[in-house]
Simulated scan of single mutants.
Amino acid sequence: MDKFILRPEDELMHQPDASKNFNESVYTNGFDDKTGVGGWMRLGNRVNEGYAELSVCLYLPDGRIACQFQRPSITSNDKFDAGGLSYKVIEPFKRISMTYEGELIIVEDPDALRDPQPLFANGRRLPGHVSWTHEASSPMHGGEPTSDDVVTMYGRDFSLGHFNQHGRVRGRIKVGNEEWTIDGHGWRDHSWGPRYWQVIYFYRLFIGNFTNGDGFMLLKIADRQGYSRRVGVLLVDGQYEEITDLDVMTDWTTARDPARVRLGVRTARRKAVIEGEILKLAPLRNRRKADDQTLVSRIAEGHTRYTWDGREGYGMTEYIERIEGGQLAGYPL
């Protein structure tokens, strides 16, 4: 029996359950094949809490980051459209689009994102526009688990339903009077179910694309007891190969940020060594109050240039972990 089921209607909205923290979200990224310019956008509907999580993060050629993070109010889960960010399914499993129209905060020094209140209050802002279309270059991957004993990608208490896909991306980014064309590749996902970021003890996620259409999505995720899972796929000649093993080696900066990664990957058909250089890191965080505590997670979003068998491509490195007693849960692993 298949472990997951995925239906065309899963591209659309799902009925929220009674969980306070029900979240339905879409994420897309896209990078130009030649210049590497691009970024990512995410909209997560938390309708039972009355707001959406809006995130736009763009990596510009001169090293600046243009971003926006908001919690616009929503009253229903009937669409992805809040705060100027919208997502549309053009053809299920084959073509989607995502668009943002609104202000962008210009970040000259990414360290300002570590404690962002002054930046959000006083940072320079410019009008922005981002729009791109994803056309499938891979099968769909994931879905809803078919039984209670199926282990999902992030764990059963974090986005129970989840699917993702690599794609061909075309679009444009405009920040103030500057504009860039995106003609390249990217990745997208769609998830639904209860979600708190702090459920993740720590994980390392790697997403990459190459000009010939190959790519990968690789995840190492660990729990508080020290048990870790390694899941993901290599995309080769338009088909996904599930990984059977993954080794992750990270070079760190003095600020405990990932700077370079070396990935050893095995599938039933091949072995691969993939190296990544993090070109620009957005050191983000998420906070949540629970009883009399404030739980904090580091969410490090790295624009990354990858090398695989002599080919160069672009994508993302994402390191998420709890911060407890001032310590990063996963560092230096």
Rank of each mutant, 00 (worst) to 15 (best):
L104E: 13
R298G: 07
P139E: 13
A259H: 12
A259Q: 15
V89P: 05
M249P: 00
R204G: 03
L235K: 02
F206T: 02
E179T: 13
V47T: 05
T211Q: 13
T267P: 12
Y100R: 00
G213Y: 13
G193C: 03
L295G: 05
G326P: 12
D237F: 02
K271I: 12
L43P: 14
T294Y: 11
D10A: 03
Y27H: 15
S138D: 05
N209F: 09
V130K: 01
S159E: 04
G84Y: 01
R114F: 00
G176F: 15
S228C: 04
T253Q: 03
G215Q: 08
S73G: 04
L6K: 04
T75V: 15
K94L: 09
N23V: 08
G184P: 03
R256K: 15
T35C: 02
L58V: 06
R124A: 14
Y154A: 13
G143K: 01
T35K: 03
R46E: 06
W180L: 05
Y59N: 00
R7D: 08
V273L: 06
H14D: 09
E241P: 06
R288C: 07
M217A: 01
W132C: 10
Y87P: 00
I173P: 06
D62S: 04
R71Y: 04
G44Y: 11
R256P: 00
F210N: 03
Y314W: 15
V26G: 06
A268K: 15
R124N: 07
R7I: 06
E53L: 15
M98Y: 01
V169R: 10
K79M: 10
P194C: 02
G155D: 05
T307G: 05
D214C: 04
H185A: 02
G36T: 04
I5T: 12
R224M: 09
W252D: 04
R288P: 01
L85F: 11
V273H: 00
I207L: 10
G161W: 13
I65E: 11
I182T: 02
W132T: 08
E301M: 09
H141Y: 07
Q70E: 15
G83F: 05
Y227Q: 14
L284M: 14
P139R: 10
A259K: 15
L119V: 10
R285E: 07
N164A: 13
Y27S: 12
T254N: 10
C57Q: 03
G155T: 00
V151E: 15
L328Y: 11
S159F: 07
A282M: 02
R285W: 00
F158H: 14
E318Y: 05
N286A: 14
N209C: 12
G193V: 07
D183N: 14
D111E: 14
G302A: 09
G38C: 12
D149R: 09
W252S: 08
V169N: 08
D33F: 11
E321T: 05
S191W: 03
A66K: 00
L284I: 06
H190C: 01
G143R: 02
M140N: 14
M41Q: 13
Y240T: 01
M316I: 11
R311I: 02
T250M: 14
K34L: 12
S138G: 06
L6I: 08
M41P: 09
F120V: 15
T253P: 09
S97G: 02
K20N: 06
I274M: 07
E103F: 03
R287N: 08
V47E: 07
T304Q: 11
V56F: 04
D309L: 01
G84V: 07
A300T: 00
